[in-house]
Structure formats: structure tokens, C-alpha cells
Design a protein around this nucleic acid. Structure first.
Length: 466
RNA sequence: GGACCCGUAGUGUAGCCCGGUUAACACGUCUCCCUGUCACGGAGAAGAUCGUGGGUUCAAAUCCCAUCGGGUCCGCCA
């Protein structure tokens, strides 16, 4: 007999069906045992009575979280015994056959609560149990719905989803790279992508015109409540698009997304406010203002776009110029002398996407003029010949006909955390890492064997006098 | 790299300031009773060298130092 879901049993009243799942609770009254069976659809009450002696004896052994399968007859509950709290509350299953697939040790923590009270160390170590709790299952479901909506929305507008490499090139500027040693090329390294930025620009040269990807971005920096070593972003790049077209697209996407998947939410202002960086800083003292009218209201979403960021910022610690966004951002001037002489005065076609006081994405139009790109890198302190070597693909590709283009990359995890009112992004990521980038469940990072190191031409040198 | 907060039965907390009986409570677990519960109920039991190491003291969960683990923030995050 084919197994059906708990919530489907209502359709089989009076018939014999087979269900399976985890034991949510056992309520034994001596001569009558109630078991709530949990599967991905919900709960179903199963009743064991002594008139079926073998089944009853077996059922007495059952404990919470055991995995069982039950064949039995679906019947209406007696009058007054209906439980309105569960979907299958007016029916119950009278078993004819019971199969125990596996027993379960007592769980290290309760899973019938929201889970915030359990230490995260425990939750992350036993993430596969933590994910059994209803809140986490709901978060994972909604995450998938959001991703599905985005894919649907963009595909319908002729965007092409393209998966770019995970093994790629280390680049200067920006965050620390995760490096992967090459076995076949001794002494050389791959880097995990901080974003698909360079590939998606190559795709513009390739004539894809409308690209997107639900991409993982990896950065070897210290995590925060809203930052992980790896996070998921909606990476978008469009040819021939103006800044306005890109922001309009993102606005349409999020307005529709919220309407469809979060109907209880109210967006403070549509169209989303668009303000320059300068004005925003003057008015709010931050580049990610919280524009909610009532900050107590958990259902208010205040989106905004902040535009016209400065191209460069002076890094006092390193005594050099850095870029606010990334070096491929288009400056608002093509005057190369000015870029080099007065970098502090140059604005960029760069924009941030802000929600309730959090940056949930940023993007820019990109430089296609190679002289401008070279000048930007020179301001950042790179030598001309190094630039051409490091970014040869840009200098090669852009000579074969490059369209003007730009894009944006809204963060999926931050958006979900905000819209689900979660205190940190780990609550919406299936398998997040700790504050020092470890995975407690898998025990990652971990040591590798001498053989592996040898094959990779790597030698571990112990640091002295720490 | 820096600052701050936390660490006590399986889980969550109290006790810590102001050192002194058998380290308390809730949930969970186990045993027994219970045929309509659904957070079932009732009776009972087991379970903690108070993160670890050292110090002060007649005496340390409690005070001091170090260390380990978790979190938040600053730096960092093109």
C-alpha cells in the first residue's frame, strides 16, 4: 500500500490507509494510547486499544521521535473529542498494522518550542534535530517559496539563469578570499567567488543581456548577526540598462514578492524612496536609514534605494584609497585626470537597497571604458602592468564589443531574516556557521591527512611563541 | 586584532554581589496507576565532581587569575 500524508487522510474516511512519520507525542492512559504522528504535512492522532493485543503491546514501547509506519482505518472522532488546533482534528486512525522503522534516543533539547531559548551551540551541533522544529521548517519552506518566486518572476521577463564557477580566481581589493590549492598546478590556488561579478560581466560581452543567478558568495571575514562566510544573493546583470531600469525592476520584484508571499506585510512607501547618499547622510546620519513610520510594527517593510555613492573612500588604517563598491563601478565622469587627481570628489553610479535600516543589497553600473577602469585601479595603488595581468579577461573581452551594463545583488538571507522578524540570518540558513566560521555539526574546518597535504604541495608550519 | 555578555542535571533557569546544611525550580527521562487524551492526569525515582586548570581561605558554584567554549559589537566586510 502506498503511504499517504497525514493531512490527506481526511479524504479517506472509513477506508484503510498507510501513513508514516515521526512520533510527536505519546499519551498513554493505561488501556488507551494516543500517538500523534508527525510528517511533513502535519499531525495525525493514532489510537491503540487492548482489543488488538499485539499492536497494543508493541505500541506501549513507542517513544517520542521514533519513526513508524501505520496502516489503519480512518474514522471520525467521537462527538466532543475534536481537536480544533490541528488540521486532522476531527479524525483519527485505528491501526491494523504497525511498523517501527527506527527508534530514537531522547533528543538533546526540545523541538516543540520556538527554540530561541536553546543555546545556539547545541542547536547548530544538532542542526538536523533543530530543523525539525516548526519554526525552522516554516523558515526553510518560505525561503524556497521566495527563491521560486524570484526565479519565476525573472524567467518570465526573459532573464537567463546561469550558474558560474565556484573554483575561480583570487582578486585584489575587497574581502579576503577562501583559497583552494591546486593539485595539478603546484603552488597555484583557486579562490572561491566573493560574488559572480566578473563572470556576469563576461556574460554581458557574451550577449546574454539579462542574467541572473541565485548565487553563493563566499568571504573569509569575521561573521556578524547579519553576515556569514557564505551567503546567498540574487545576482542580476543587465545590458543596455539605465540605473532607473535596474531599480525599477528590483522594486517591481519585491513589491510583487511581498504581496504574494507576505500578504500580512505593509510596505511603507511605493514607489520605494530613492535618495542620494549625500542627502541621506545629511538627513539621517547613516547610509541605511530606517524609514518605517512605526518601528514597533512587526509587519511594516520600509524599502529604499540610496544612490550616487562616492566612488572612493580614504582608508585611514591602510593610508590609501579604497572603493566604496567595487573597482568595476562606473564613475560619474570619464575625465581620467580628475579621477586620478581628486578621487574624493568622484561620485559613482552605485546604489544600495535598504530595508528597515539594513542594507539588503547593492549594485552599480559598470565601467566599460578600459582607460577609466585602469585609472580607477591606479587610484587604488595598482601598477598598470599588474592590472592588465590580473584582469586580462576584462581587457581582452571588452575589446570585442561590450554593451553598457549594470546590475545589483540583493541578499536573500538578510531579506528573509527581516521579513520573518528573525534576530539573525542563521535562523533562515539551513546549515549556518558559528562566530568563528565553524560548522559544529560537521566539525568544519577540519584537519586533513599528510597524504592530502603532500599531494597539494602544502606544508603546515607551526607558529612559534603565540 | 580589540571590547563586552554568557557558561550550574538531558534542556532552560535560580543561587554568585554579601563564601558556610543535602545546590533549588520547571520541562524532559525512567517506574507504577489510569479507556478519550491532545502541553493528558496522579504517585514515585534517577540524574550536576556548578566549562576546565590554578590561586586565596578553616571552607569556593560564589572571590581572584588563566584558559576553553558560545554570542553581540568595533575593526574588517570590493
Amino acid at each position: 500500500m502506498q503511504r499517504i500524508l497525514n493531512t490527506e487522510t481526511a479524504k479517506y474516511l472509513g477506508k484503510t490507509v498507510k501513513v508514516a512519520g515521526w512520533v510527536n507525542t505519546v499519551r498513554s492512559h493505561g488501556k488507551i494510547i494516543f500517538i500523534d504522528l508527525r510528517d511533513r504535512s502535519g499531525l495525525l492522532q493514532i489510537i491503540f486499544t487492548p482489543d488488538k493485543e499485539n499492536l497494543y503491546t508493541l505500541a506501549q514501547k513507542i517513544r517520542p521521535e521514533w519513526v513508524i509506519g501505520v496502516e489503519g482505518k480512518v474514522s471520525k472522532r467521537p462527538r466532543g473529542m475534536v481537536n480544533p488546533k490541528i488540521e486532522t482534528g476531527n479524525i483519527e486512525l485505528h491501526p491494523e498494522n504497525l511498523e517501527i522503522f527506527s527508534q530514537a534516543k531522547t533528543l538533546p533539547f526540545s523541538i516543540d518550542t520556538l527554540g530561541y531559548e536553546i543555546s545556539e551551540e547545541k542547536r547548530l551541533k544538532y542542526r538536523y534535530l533543530d530543523l525539525r522544529r516548526e519554526r525552522m521548517r516554516k523558515n526553510l519552506k518560505i525561503r524556497q517559496k521566495v527563491l521560486h518566486f524570484i526565479r519565476d518572476f525573472l524567467t518570465n521577463q526573459e532573464f537567463i539563469e546561469i550558474d558560474t564557477p565556484i573554483l575561480t580566481k583570487s582578486t585584489p581589493e575587497g574581502a579576503r578570499d577562501f583559497l583552494v590549492p591546486s593539485r595539478l598546478q603546484p603552488g597555484k590556488f583557486y579562490a572561491l567567488p566573493q560574488s559572480p561579478q566578473q563572470y556576469k560581466q563576461m556574460l554581458q560581452v557574451a550577449g546574454i543581456e539579462k542574467y541572473f543567478q541565485i548565487a553563493r558568495a563566499l568571504r573569509d571575514e569575521d561573521p556578524r548577526a547579519d553576515r556569514q562566510a557564505e551567503h546567498t544573493q540574487l545576482d542580476i546583470e543587465i545590458s543596455f540598462a539605465s540605473q532607473k531600469e535596474i531599480l525599477d525592476l528590483v522594486e517591481r520584484l519585491y513589491v510583487n514578492l511581498v504581496k504574494k508571499l507576505f500578504p500580512e506585510k505593509r510596505v511603507t512607501k511605493i514607489p520605494f524612496p530613492r535618495m542620494t547618499y549625500k542627502k541621506t547622510m545629511e538627513k539621517y546620519g547613516t547610509d541605511k536609514p530606517d524609514l518605517r513610520r512605526n518601528k514597533e510594527n512587526l509587519n511594516e517593510l520600509a524599502f529604499a534605494f540610496i544612490t550616487d555613492f562616492p566612488m572612493f573612500e580614504w582608508k585611514e588604517g591602510e593610508k590609501k584609497w579604497g572603493v566604496m563598491h567595487h573597482p568595476f563601478t562606473l564613475p560619474q565622469t570619464e575625465d581620467i585626470k580628475k579621477i586620478k587627481k581628486e578621487p574624493d570628489k568622484i561620485l559613482a553610479f552605485q546604489y544600495d537597497f535598504v530595508l528597515n535600516g539594513y542594507e539588503i543589497g547593492s549594485g552599480s553600473l559598470r565601467t566599460t571604458n578600459l582607460e577609466v577602469l585602469t585609472a580607477v585601479f591606479e587610484v587604488l595603488g595598482h601598477k598598470k602592468q599588474d592590472i592588465k595581468k590580473q584582469f586580462r579577461h576584462y581587457f581582452d573581452a571588452f575589446r570585442y564589443g561590450v554593451p553598457p551594463h549594470g546590475g545589483i545583488a540583493p541578499g536573500i538571507d538578510r531579506f528573509l531574516a527581516k521579513v520573518l522578524n528573525e534576530p539573525n540570518i542563521r535562523e533562515v540558513i539551513p546549515f549556518p556557521k558559528t562566530g568563528d566560521n565553524r560548522d559544529l555539526m560537521m566539525d568544519v574546518p577540519s584537519e586533513v591527512t599528510e597524504e592530502q597535504l603532500k599531494e597539494l604541495h602544502i606544508k603546515i608550519v607551526k607558529r612559534k611563541n603565540r
